[in-house]
Each structure stands twice: as C-alpha cells, then as structure tokens.
C-alpha cells in the first residue's frame, strides 16, 4: 500500500508546489513509483512547475466526477521514469473536492503507487483540509519568518485534529519540517530566524533546509523540478531531504554561509 504524503504550510508562497515537484521527482529518481496531485482547485500550478502544462487533458476533478478514468488523467513525466502528475481543474472550485470522491481516487492510487504526494493549497479551508485528510505523513513547508512559522503551527494542529488518522483514532500523521528559502547570510546577521529558533517553536523533526536560491525561479521558469538541477544548492538540498525521508542519515548542508574568496567578497557578487 502506498504512502500518502501531504505538502502543506498554511501560508501561501512558501514553496509547497516547488517542494512537491522536487520530492515527487526525487522519489521517482530513486526508483519509487510516485504520483503528485495538485489540490489547488481553480489555481492550477503544479503542471507549470512540472513542465507538463501543455499535456493536460483530463484532471483530478474529472476523475472525481466520473467524467474520465484515473489513468486517462495521469500524465507520465517525460524525463523521469516512475513519475506521474495528476493535475487539477483550472475552472472549478474547491467544492468539487468531495471526501468520498477524493477517497476513491486515493484508494485506487494507493494500489498503484508507492508514494502519493498531495500538493496542498494555502489556507486552512476545504482544499487544504482535503489535501491533508488522507495523509499518512506530512511535510510542513515553512519559511524562517514569523507569519509562516505561526501558520505552520496552526496546520500542525489541523493535522493532529482533523486528519482521518485523528478521526479514526489511528497512530498520528508523521510530521516533518522542511525549512525553505533559508538565507544563511541573513541568519548570521541576525535578520532571519535560524533553524533552531524554528525547531524550538514548532517542535517537529527537521527533514531538510533548502537555501534561498536563484535556481528555484529558474527551474519554475523552464518547468523543470529544481531537484533535477544537481549543480544548484537548492537541488542538492532537496535530494538530501528526499534521502532523509527514505531513512538515510545525512548532515544538514547549506545552513552556514559559504566561505567566499577575497575577490568575490571585494566585488560583492554572488553566483
């Protein structure tokens, strides 16, 4: 039976979709059959980040409504074996997500896939609740910034109280913290919360720290998950996080400012 993983945050713009794309691609690269689902009904974006926007025929909502078969809506990634994308509808709204409908799709996907990644919309309303409801594990995407940390705390409360596991009294959803847009230089200057500050407040295990990187914007511009850019710090940090998720013990990289040479410091330029 596949594991259902929700990428969630409460706050918008912290990197849920980027992280969903990166994790799904990372699992598939390691040979795990993976599907990533866009739960942001009406504001479809996962297809753009995955670079398959021109190939969307049917979507998640068509499947829920019985207008298309699940396999017809799944888009097979052209770059990575074992990777599938289930896009959402751009025209409907969140009410199209019924608990029964989503459950039927999840049950079918669990039989086929090892990992099912649910890319949650922002907020704590229906879309976000449906994305987390069936989760076995949750990756809480947080920026080192006060409003994001508080919203993550709120969503952790939702996971503990409103998930199916909570409702059925099963073992709780396993929680992971993914700290994104981390800028070690600003942390060193004391302008940004550091990893330990966030960990102290949220009190859940740290899965990874993704450094602020120009590679992320570049990747979404061209529709290639940033984890495939293995020369970038962000790409490497995502690869590490995926490895940790799968049980490897790796040290956290990119949490301290890189040592820079005299010339680059004088010129004040960054790559």
């Amino acid at each position: 039976m596949g594991q259902i993983i929700v990428m969630t945050s409460g706050k918008g713009g912290v990197g849920k979709t980027t992280s969903s794309a990166a994790f799904a691609t990372g699992f598939a690269l390691r040979g795990h059959k993976t599907v990533v689902i866009d739960f942001d009904v009406g504001l479809r974006n996962l297809d753009l980040v995955m670079g398959c926007e021109r190939r969307v025929v049917f979507d998640f909502i068509n499947v829920i409504n019985g207008e298309a078969k699940l396999y017809q809506a799944l888009i097979k990634d052209k770059r990575v074996e074992n990777l599938y994308i289930l896009p959402t509808s751009q025209t409907r709204d969140k009410d199209a997500l019924t608990k029964e409908g989503v459950e039927a799709v999840m049950d079918e996907l669990r039989k086929e896939f090892e990992f099912i990644i649910c890319d949650s919309p922002a907020g704590i309303e229906k879309g976000a609740l449906m994305a987390l409801y069936f989760a076995d594990q949750a990756v809480v995407v947080t920026n080192p910034e006060v409003s994001s940390v508080r919203d993550s705390d709120r969503i952790l409360g939702m996971l503990a109280a409103r998930s199916r596991r909570a409702e059925l009294g099963q073992p709780p959803v396993i929680e992971h913290l993914l700290l994104t847009r981390y800028d070690p230089i600003r942390v060193e200057r004391g302008e940004m919360l550091n990893v330990n500050d966030v960990l102290e407040i949220l009190a859940i295990p740290l899965l990874g720290v993704i450094p602020e990187s120009q590679a992320v914007l570049r990747a979404s511009n061209v529709g290639v998950p940033v984890i495939l850019d293995d020369t970038s710090n962000a790409g490497m940090a995502y690869a590490d996080a995926v490895a940790r998720f799968l049980g490897e013990q790796l040290e956290h990289r990119f949490v301290k400012p890189e040592k820079r040479g005299l010339f680059s410091r004088l010129l004040g330029r960054t790559a």
Binding site: L48, E53, R54, V57, F58, N62, E67, A68, Q90, T91, G223
Partner: peptide
C-alpha cells in the same frame, strides 16, 4: 513563452463548457 501558450488556451475555453469529457 510557456505562459502565453497555456493562457491563450485557458482564455479561449474559460467560458465554454468542458468539452473533452
């Protein structure tokens, strides 16, 4: 370029019914 292509299609079909099913 990507946005122009995908949004042109979305604008064209926004008010029409979802005809593919």
């Amino acid at each position: 370029e990507r946005l122009q292509i995908v949004m042109a299609h979305e604008r064209a079909s926004r008010d029409g019914p979802d005809f593919l099913p």
